[in-house]
Design a protein around this nucleic acid. Structure first.
Length: 901
RNA sequence: GCGCGGAUAGCUCAGUGGUAGAGCGGCUCGCUUACACCGAGUUGGUCGGGGGUUCGAAUCCCUCUCCGCGCACCA
């Protein structure tokens, strides 16, 4: 056995093993190896932004995927964890544009033009694209890097084009002039999902307008956006509103712009809520979704008073033109004041939609966009509703179902340049509003006479490429015969698990399911695990602007990747948000150190790795730890099968730290420090057995240190290469000893009690020592309740740190000797009158009080006829037994007090 | 407004009808030949409030309060 270093050096170990795993192609999936006895297991990574950097959310998400993948390998499956990145259209273009502007290279993207800018973005991608991938590698992620994909790869691009053309031909993609969410910063349309409603404190402005036909009548209108008054083309009231109904059909004078105070109609529309504001609504069809609909119903004029970048245009009038929308608001209020029509302004809370990527308020805007009527909606809804696809936690199924029920068409076009260009060409000189077969071309290839055509300038929403991820990454071609012969698709689609955040359930998960059905005829994954959101200690979401997100790479360098992984998994209960606390990572590091030292301890006992355990030589402690190991294996296995990762880590922690290290190893020192070589070798065999199982149980969580120790302890030595000889990654996942094996070792369930009783006696003895402030080795005397083997006495002595431990059935303590009732008998701490009798009396008195109170409770219950007559026999027996136990204990405690004198 | 989570020890969380738990922290001891990134001991709770069902409720029902999230509305 090679000797382990005194201290663990994770940085060196982690780098070395990761390279070795890569060299040995340990992560590479081979569809040819899939068989009935070697089933496939697959996950596709939620592709991070190609120019992004790793954050804690990635750590959580990818640790889980790695745990699932690594365990699947240990279960003997052929595993494909398929990695890659996405091009994140708007975000990436924003970053590059901003950088170029900062460098002074451009003022506006038009200065460079489409081709040049896209070139610059590619340069950026080449430079930054591998950062996040390298970071995932630092975490230990066991992805098949040979299959790494990017949403802009040629093959992938072809999939996107094919899908667009297919949907277009099916009539599901159409072009329409509609109100969309417009981002004035990125100058593009956004889908509803990319708009985040955000509470804003603003003002509600009340202003009055004159009814043209009745100059004495004034109406008061409430608005939050006075700058859009020049775009008003009507005011609306509810026809059922008695205050105003008689005015329908008349007109009011629009106050702005000053040079064009047009007369606009008063219309009746049910949309108006007469409880809200004044019950009179100004209608701006160009700048509000609801207003646009009112406008449609009443055939109102549409006046767009904003430039695309939200600067007011000439139609807003000379006072407002050229102002930004927010400055324009102030100016409009001033003008209303000057005209003396501003009635009041009140602070007002409302929700304003913000662009998810650019962080600015979006502007509802009428524009020509491409829309998609979602395909395969019913299948997608059913597959989750009927439980064929499982969500964990399953409450997300309800959210998913709700969204699909009220689903709206998806605006898929974006007015940026970094993205998949829409494969539609228009015949030059043709009228785009009246397209026909001859004037529009939609195809994966340009028209044969490209000089006569112009391609649509728009690109597709990034999610329009991401929704194909589960099969486009596997080489899907859309050709039935080819795809049927594609070994990767055949073996690994549908994938097994998807791990993602619930915030992208609509953006991504739902759409992937639809795409799966539409083009593969099948669901894309069988289980979806939704992680929680990582929050800081105060419960705030982690964000760049708050600066409360730690850098995972920094954590790795300070604590190791294993520590980070273990720490984050320990604090991530199923379905709940995670309070991140660096202490958990520190605890992960401590755990690694403990593991390292426990392995070193084993090595220091010498001897080769022992494999044969002799049933006849097993001590009660050996049997106990084997039973505890069985429980731990069963618990961890069950927890992982239910995606309860933090439960799994709790079990690992409890088993290893408290059961194995604190009790078993300490107890086995009786043997290891003894002179019986046969027993010693047998205990070492038990230790090796337990450690080799422990390392395997830990491996999915802490891949590096477990691999290092697997080899360091030579547990790989006698194993075939593909079963752990080469790497712990493919060692067999532990199984509890079955009934036959337990019988072979002569282990009975009640063996657990034998050791437990002993440990309880130890606890009580230690407690005695600390009560009397004894911190040296001292003499204990046990007056045994039954005969004890010498080995057990030696274990007791070591655990009690007693010198000596006398066993004396006839022990007659001097008055005042502290003692404790233990399952093994009465344990005395003879201090030869050195103790404070009063302190001891107080100590036992406290215990008496507790026992008396418990006894009182149970006695009262048993005296209550309502209780005894209604309760099941089993519960009654339990209570009876409890009463007897407390009574006995009380009697003995009283004896102890009287023995004090 | 509708829906979904959550409220248990100082902190993070287990605990779905039968004697309230764990880890961390705090405090007190201790460098006993694996480990001070450690060991031993100890201290912490009328289980958010109120009502109900029950012999018995942290647990089931009703109701209220507070925190978080989603959807709708948002003039």
């Amino acid at each position: 056995m090679p000797e382990l270093d005194k201290t663990y050096t994770p940085a060196e170990v982690e780098a070395r093993w990761y390279q070795r795993w890569l060299d040995d192609k340990c992560f590479e999936a081979d569809p040819a190896r899939v068989s009935a006895t070697r089933p496939a297991y697959s996950i596709v990574i939620p592709p991070p932004n190609v120019t992004g950097v790793l954050h804690m959310g990635h750590v959580l998400n990818n640790t889980i995927q790695d745990i699932l993948s690594r365990r699947a390998r240990m279960l003997g499956k052929e595993v494909l964890w398929l990695p890659g990145t996405d091009h994140a259209g708007i975000a990436t273009q924003n970053v590059v544009e901003k950088t170029l502007k900062k460098q002074g290279a451009i003022k506006h993207r038009d200065d460079l033009g489409r081709e040049k800018l896209v070139e610059k973005i590619w340069e950026w991608k080449e430079k930054h694209g591998d950062i996040i991938i390298d970071q995932l590698k630092k975490m230990g992620c066991s992805c098949d890097w040979s299959r790494q994909r990017f949403t802009f790869d040629d093959d992938y691009n072809a999939c996107v084009m094919r899908v667009f053309v297919d949907l277009y031909k099916k009539g599901l993609i159409y072009r329409g002039k509609r109100m969309v969410n417009w981002c004035p910063s990125s100058l593009t349309a956004l889908s509803d999902e990319e708009v985040i409603p955000t509470a804003q404190s603003g003002f509600m402005y009340y202003f009055k307008v004159q009814v043209v036909e009745q100059p004495d009548t004034w109406l008061t209108i409430a608005t939050t956006r006075p700058e859009t008054i020049p775009g008003d083309t009507a005011v609306a009231v509810n026809p059922k509103d008695e205050r105003y109904a008689h005015l329908i059909g008349k007109h009011i004078r629009r106050p702005l712009p000053l040079e064009n105070q047009a007369s606009i109609p008063i219309v009746g529309d049910d949309h108006v809520d007469f409880e809200f504001g004044t019950g009179v609504l100004k209608v701006t069809p160009a700048h509000d979704k609801a207003d646009f609909e009112i406008g449609q119903r009443h055939k109102l004029e549409v006046i767009d008073v904003l430039h695309p970048n939200a600067i007011l245009n000439d139609l807003a009038g000379k006072d407002l033109a050229g102002l930004d929308r927010f400055e324009g608001r102030k100016k409009a209020v001033e003008l209303l004041k000057e005209m003396e029509v501003l009635v009041k302004e009140e602070p007002h809370q409302n929700n304003v939609g913000f662009s998810e990527r650019a962080g600015v308020p979006i502007e509802p805007r009428l524009s020509e966009q491409w829309f998609l009527k979602y395909p395969s909606v019913k299948e997608s809804q059913d597959v989750v509703a009927n439980g064929e696809m499982k969500f964990h936690p399953d409450r997300w199924a309800k959210t998913y179902d709700h969204w699909l029920t009220g689903i709206q068409d998806w605006c898929i076009s974006r007015q940026v340049w970094w993205g998949h260009r829409i494969p539609v060409w228009y015949k030059k000189g043709s009228d785009r509003s009246a397209l026909s077969d001859g004037t529009v071309h939609c195809g994966t290839e340009p028209p044969s006479d490209p000089e006569n055509w112009e391609q649509d300038p728009d690109v597709l929403d990034t999610w329009f490429s991401s929704w194909l991820w589960p099969f486009a990454t596997m080489g899907w071609t859309g050709d039935k015969a080819k795809d049927a012969a594609n070994p990767t698709l055949r073996a690994f689609y549908p994938t097994t698990d998807l791990v993602t955040g619930p915030d992208i359930i609509f953006f991504w998960v739902a759409r992937m399911i639809m795409a799966g059905f539409e083009w593969m005829g099948e669901l894309p994954f069988k289980n979806v695990y939704f992680t929680g959101i990582i929050r800081d200690k105060q419960g705030r979401k982690m964000s760049k602007s708050l600066g409360n997100s730690p850098d995972p790479l920094d954590l790795i360098s300070r604590y190791s990747a294993d520590a980070l992984r273990f720490g984050i998994m320990r604090s991530a209960p199923l379905g709940q948000d995670i309070r991140y606390d660096e202490q958990n990572v520190e605890l992960g590091r401590n755990f690694c150190t403990k593991l390292w030292n426990a392995a070193r301890f084993r090595q220091m006992q010498g001897g080769e790795t022992e494999t044969e355990i002799s049933a006849t030589l097993l001590s009660s402690d050996d049997k106990w730890i084997l039973l505890r190991l069985n429980t731990a294996i069963a618990e961890v296995t069950a927890a992982l099968e239910d995606y309860r990762f933090s439960d799994a880590t709790s079990t690992l922690y409890r088993f290893f730290w408290s059961e194995y290290c604190d009790w078993y190893i300490e107890a086995s020192k009786a043997t290891l420090q003894g002179t019986d070589d046969k027993r010693k070798a047998n205990t070492l065999a038990v230790i090796d057995f337990v450690l080799s199982n422990t390392l395997r149980l830990f491996h999915p969580f802490m891949p590096f240190i477990t691999e290092e120790l697997w080899h360091g302890m030579a547990f790989n030595a006698d194993l075939p290469a593909d079963q752990g000889g080469n790497s712990i990654m493919v060692a067999k996942w532990p199984k509890p000893l079955d009934a036959d094996e337990l019988a072979h070792f002569g282990i009975l369930p009640e063996d657990e009690k034998t050791a437990n009783d002993k440990y309880e006696a130890v606890n009580l003895g230690r407690n005695l020592k600390s009560t009397f402030n004894i911190n040296k080795r001292v003499r204990f005397v046990l007056k045994p309740a039954q005969e004890l083997p010498t080995h057990e006495i030696e274990v007791l002595r070591i655990l009690l740190n007693a010198e000596p431990l006398d066993v004396d059935a006839a022990f007659a303590p001097t008055q005042g000797t502290p003692s404790a009732l233990t399952p093994l008998g009465t344990l005395f701490l003879p201090l030869d009158g050195l103790i404070d009798v009063e302190a001891e009396r107080a100590r036992i008195g406290k215990e008496v009080a507790k026992v008396e109170s418990e006894l009182e409770k149970v006695t009262a219950k048993l005296a209550d006829e309502k209780f005894t007559s209604k309760v099941p026999q089993k519960v009654l027996d339990e209570h009876q037994q409890r009463k007897t136990d407390w009574q006995e204990k009380l009697a003995k405690l009283k004896e102890m007090i009287s023995a004090l004198g």
